[in-house]
Design a protein around this nucleic acid. Structure first.
Lengths: 135, 135
DNA sequence: TATTGTTATACTCTATAACTATA
DNA sequence: TATAGTTATAGAGTATAACAATA
């Protein structure tokens, strides 16, 4: 095995990405849209665009693109923030919440497929190590 | 921490990608080009395009793009395979080998920065877990 | 003048499909 | 007809810079 950590990361990331695209396509979602929908439906309060971008770990401009797509698909709506005036709030529609549920199922199947070589203990180990990197 | 394995993977992958782009930019390389140059310079024999694609885990068309860029930068050359006629061999130039060395340095610095939160034992654990996924 | 989000634009990575040349 | 690589094209993700509206 001549692959270093970065290589192995890239290989796993490509595999995950392909799997996600395949599983999410029937729902009309890309992996990035699914991620954003998960954050938006998971938030306790409607999110401002800037906060969404931060949680997604992307620049604000990138959040605009993904919310445009989700809005056009009828899964989220934008509304002016009554408290700010220059902020915009994003919140899920009923359909968005429904799709979010279906998506969760697809996602679990995807995880099961990609991480099949790891047992429960190994997955937890991996999760803990990756969490350390997320700082 | 509300992130699952796939999320954490994505977050780490984005961090690695940003770091690599920054470190490799001074060399005029993208992460994908650097990866290909590493495979090409690391091969014992000149590689056929198809073999390169396979080792990079991409479709042949994607190998064409990256080799185009490396060739234009004077880091690799293409030559017809004397044994096949419809195959094309890719091999590094002297400059390609030089850049490969500089690149190795940049890469080690990048790894050190991104994986700083992990000690040697944890990195080895992570490497082993990721290797299990690479099947 | 600083902040929030968007329009405009570009680049990286990857993929499918159709075509060319060879076998 | 099957294989190797390329041309043509597209879509997903991300980014910087310039701008409008608001504060």
């Amino acid at each position: 095995m001549e692959h270093d950590l970065v290589d192995l990361f890239g290989r796993a990331a490509r595999k995950i990405r392909r799997n996600q695209m395949e599983r999410l396509a029937p729902l009309g979602l890309t992996p990035g849209q699914s991620r954003a929908l998960r954050v938006i439906t998971g938030a306790e309060e409607p999110l401002r665009m800037g906060d969404l971008a931060e949680r997604l770990d992307v620049v604000p401009r990138s959040a605009t693109t993904v919310v445009d797509a989700l809005e056009e698909a009828g899964l989220v709506t934008r509304a002016p923030d009554p408290e700010s005036g220059r902020s915009i709030l994003v919140m899920p529609t009923d359909r968005g919440r429904t799709v979010r549920t279906l998506m969760g199922q697809a996602r679990r199947e995807a995880v099961e497929e990609v991480f099949a070589p790891l047992n429960a203990e190994q997955r937890e180990q991996l999760r803990a190590l990756l969490a350390l990197l997320d700082t």
